[in-house]
Amino acid sequence: MKNYVKIARIQRELTQQQLAEKVGITRQTVSLIEKGKYNPTLKLCLSICDVVNKSLDELFWVEKEERME
């Protein structure tokens, strides 16, 4: 599912590896989340929000019509 993790990560000047280390996951998982190929748990979503200093809405909210993509 579409999300704004990549944009937020770049804004914070973090690499996928750095974000992964801060959250405690692997770089591959970060990559899959950014591509929308892995659905993270709410717990992981919140951890990512904490690291990039954004709200859950800002990172993961997508309009209903776009969700099916």
């Binding site: 405690g24 996951i25 692997t26 591959q28 998982t29 899959l32 892995y38 993270p40 748990t41 717990k43 992981l44």
Partner: peptide, 11 residues
Amino acid sequence: MIKKIKDERLK
């Protein structure tokens, strides 16, 4: 050494 898997996707 084998590290404990923390990544939820890998779990």
